[in-house]
Structures are given as structure tokens and as C-alpha cells.
Simulated scan of single mutants.
Amino acid sequence: MKPEIIVVTAAYGRDRLDELGGQQAVVPMIAAAGADGVEIRRELFNDAELSDLAALGKVIADHRLTAFYSVPEALFAPDGTLNPNLDRHFAEAAQLNAQLLKYSLGHYQQGSNWSALREKLAARTLCLVVENDQTACGRLAALENYFHQHSETRVGNGMTFDMGNWLWTGDSPTAAAARLADFVSYIHVKAVAPMGDSWRAVALDDADSLWRETLALLPAGVPRGIEFPLEGEDLVAVTRHYVELLSEV
């Protein structure tokens, strides 16, 4: 069974999205390219767009796409408590008819009280996942601690594995894949190349084989998100090329 292919709107770049008319404008292109879904990014909304998420949700549904929703915040605050904006984000996800809500992990502390989050999720079918980001909180040791410690009380629906972000934190993507594969429920496919003292995301056709090696270690049936630059005159054709590639690899 082929995995679902999700296109992350940020792959088109903020400037190109603004030129096209925002995230809603690329939904028809993503559908035309044969993708299964779209990941909407909260940080790319202006105030007017954020106040009318139901309209975007309808466009996504009309194009028969699955909606994922990414919030650029951590699930756990610096003091170890849950993000105080959870209810607002749950409501936004509902307006988008999103099936998945994604956060970075943040400052998880062992022994956290899960009852509040468990209650919030009890009446929802929404999947809540955490992602390895490019900060110290996204290090392999931190994610392993979260997923392995107190597994009997941990709630949520697993991990968004961003294969490129490990390089920003100094970890090995393949080592992370081998150690966290059992918890992965969504993959951000991202190839990167060195840029000075840091890294930059690049298109898969311009990358080395590390993304393929990493992907081979991860669950084959979970959704795969395109989170590398999609650029060119014909964005539908470029997107279709990578949708087809990630459907087969």
C-alpha cells in the first residue's frame, strides 16, 4: 500500500505564497499534482486568514485533500506545563477539518501530569504529534526521553520525524530513524546541504543519498510530507514530480 503524500505549503516559500495569494491559493495546485493532502502552517497566515479558517477548510475538502495543521509552538512550555494555547489550536484545527495537529516537543519533563491533555483528546479524533525541531529540545536524546520514559502514561499519537532537522541539532538522521522508528506516524521528507556553518533545505534531485537511506529505515505506510523547496515556473509539474517520486521510493 502506497503512503499518503502530503505537501507542506511552506515548501513553496513565503514570498511565492504571498505572490500566489496565500495558502488557500496553492490547494488546487496540490490537488492537481496528485497529492493526498496538505499541511497548513499557522505561521504563514495573516490576521484575516486566521479569522476565516473555515473557508480554507472548505476549499481543502472540496479538493478532496486531507488537512494537517502545523503550529509553530512547543507542546511543553519552559516550566514543563502544557502549551496554554492548546484549546485555541484545537478549535483552529477543527475549522480546517484537520486530521493531525503538530507541535515541536519543547521542554518535556519526566513525571508530567497527563490528565489534562488526555481529557482534551478524549472527545476528539484528531491526532496530536510532536516533531523534532532545530533547537536543543529537538535533540535525539530529548525525543528518546519523551517516547521511552513513562510510555504507559504518554498520550498523543506519535512523532513527526523531520529527517533534515537532525543535522541542525548535530544528530545523525539514520541513527535517529533506527532508534525512533516505532514511534513515527508522519515523516517530513527534507534533504539538506551545508551552508556555511549551518544547513539549508534542498530539492531531492539536488541532494545526496542521505534522505533515501533515512527513509528506508522508517515505517513505509505512514504519510510522507514534502518539506523541501518546490520551485519553478510550473509548480503543478514540479509538485507532481515529487509526489510521484515519494509514492514509489
Rank of each mutant, 00 (worst) to 15 (best):
C127E: 14
S198D: 13
V249H: 08
E213W: 00
T9F: 04
F90I: 10
D52Y: 02
A67L: 01
S112C: 12
W168M: 12
K190N: 06
H150T: 12
L65G: 06
G138Y: 09
G221W: 00
Q99T: 14
D197T: 14
Y69R: 09
L101M: 14
A176V: 10
N132W: 04
N132D: 07
L82G: 00
Q149K: 08
Q99G: 15
Y242E: 09
P78I: 01
I60E: 05
G80I: 05
T169Y: 08
A61F: 08
N46K: 07
E213P: 01
S185V: 15
G22K: 06
R118A: 12
P173F: 07
H107M: 08
A61W: 06
A98S: 05
A77P: 00
L17V: 13
V26W: 07
Y12H: 12
N97W: 01
R139C: 12
I5P: 01
T66P: 01
R154H: 03
A67G: 01
A177M: 10
S172Y: 11
E144G: 01
Y186A: 09
S51P: 03
L53A: 07
K190V: 14
A142M: 08
A220M: 04
W199H: 11
R154I: 01
I60C: 08
L50D: 13
R118V: 01
D208S: 12
Q24D: 03
L117G: 06
L217G: 03
N132Y: 03
R118I: 00
D62E: 15
G57D: 04
A55Q: 00
E49V: 03
V184S: 06
E43M: 07
N83F: 03
T169A: 15
G80T: 07
T81Q: 08
P78M: 03
S172P: 09
V236K: 11
A98Y: 01
N85P: 01
L101S: 12
A67S: 06
Y103T: 06
K102V: 10
Q99L: 11
T174W: 11
R240F: 02
L75V: 03
A141R: 11
A54C: 00
A74R: 07
L230P: 05
D36Q: 13
L167Q: 15
V26G: 05
L215V: 05
D206Y: 02
V238W: 03
I5R: 04
V189Y: 00
G225S: 10
